[in-house]
Design a protein around this nucleic acid. Structure first.
Length: 292
DNA sequence: CACTTGACCTGTCCGC
DNA sequence: TGCGGACAGGTCAAGT
């Protein structure tokens, strides 16, 4: 579920909530959710303070005072939910979104802080993970070595996006957009939304796009990612931010999960198909199959 | 090499 | 209502 805007929304929340706090305990119930624990835990995690919360692509980085970092990937259904002790971990809290008590059956890892607040890593499908690594080794991970540029960075322009998309010139443009080594952080929602914005059909081959298409796609992608961050991300099913709140981007979506409804631009009924092995939402009129 | 498909998991929804 | 199968936002490994 969580793509760049959702992970960035979580990062903004955690930045506010956990920086400066010291970890006093860690629990985890599912070894794959914390693959290199527990050997390093007591020495490099307990009694260390969270120095910063960063994001690269869809990955969160919690830098610790121990010179180690917690690396967290939410994958499809991961959540990082913070609860202060005064919220009593959900019971009876006035905020509706905090009604569910934590931990629950999807809680995989729990961090406890020196003020008794807790950070819950919940993950229904168990695809996500938390890792503990020396901070200096993080850039050496295969994922970080190959991942593409941040699309919201100021130096990310349409020319560099074109150059990177053409590394996948013989595949369809949707598969190229979803490739994390091309551009960081794009997933199924924002691939569909940006292709609609640029009026490009997802099955067109990357090599067949014109410069006009590349400029439109760059503009549409940047705009849709920024809009979604402004709206707190997309809460399609399980996604919530660090305070347990849903995002509202889905009410601004033009095609994603809108099959059967009229296109906001031309009124044609949005269709759902399968492209690059993923559910794909398209306006069959606006999004041309061939060069314009 | 470039590209596509299957596997990792659990929960939900849809049709019979 | 029960049950099987398809499907869900991500990423690797294995296959073609």
């Amino acid at each position: 579920m969580p793509e760049l805007p959702e992970v960035e929304t979580v990062r903004i929340g955690l930045q506010k909530l956990v920086v400066g706090k010291t970890i006093t305990n860690v629990d985890f119930d599912w070894p794959k959710s914390f693959p290199n624990a527990p050997a390093d835990v007591s020495q490099f995690l307990l009694d260390s303070t969270i120095v910063s919360v960063k994001r690269r692509a869809k990955v969160l980085l919690l830098e610790l005072s121990s010179s180690y970092s917690l690396i967290i990937h939410l994958k499809m259904t991961g959540q990082l939910v913070y609860r202060s002790k005064t919220e009593d971990f959900g019971a009876g809290h006035p905020n509706d979104s905090l009604v569910n008590p934590l931990p629950d059956k999807s809680t995989r890892v729990t961090l406890t802080f020196n003020d008794n607040a807790k950070l819950f890593f919940n993950d229904q499908r168990k695809f996500g993970w938390v890792r503990l690594l020396p901070t200096v080794e993080v850039p050496q991970l295969d994922f970080f070595k190959k991942v593409g540029p941040e699309p919201l960075a100021s130096d990310f322009n349409w020319q560099s996006m074109k150059e990177r998309l053409l590394r996948r010139k013989n595949t369809n443009i949707k598969a190229a957009l979803l490739d994390q080594s091309v551009v960081a952080g794009v997933g199924n929602i924002y691939a569909d939304e940006s292709l609609w914005g640029a009026k490009i059909h997802p099955t067109r081959l990357a090599r067949d796009l014109t410069d006009k298409d590349f400029t439109a796609l760059h503009r549409a992608l940047v705009d849709v990612l920024q809009l979604s961050i402004d709206k707190g991300g997309s809460s399609n099913s399980t996604y919530v931010d660090a305070e347990g709140r849903k995002g509202s981007y889905m009410s601004f979506a033009n095609v994603f999960r809108r099959e059967g409804q009229p296109c906001n631009r031309c009124g044609t009924i949005i269709v759902k198909t399968r492209v690059a092995g993923r559910g794909t939402h398209t306006c069959p009129t606006c999004q041309k199959l061939s060069k314009t």
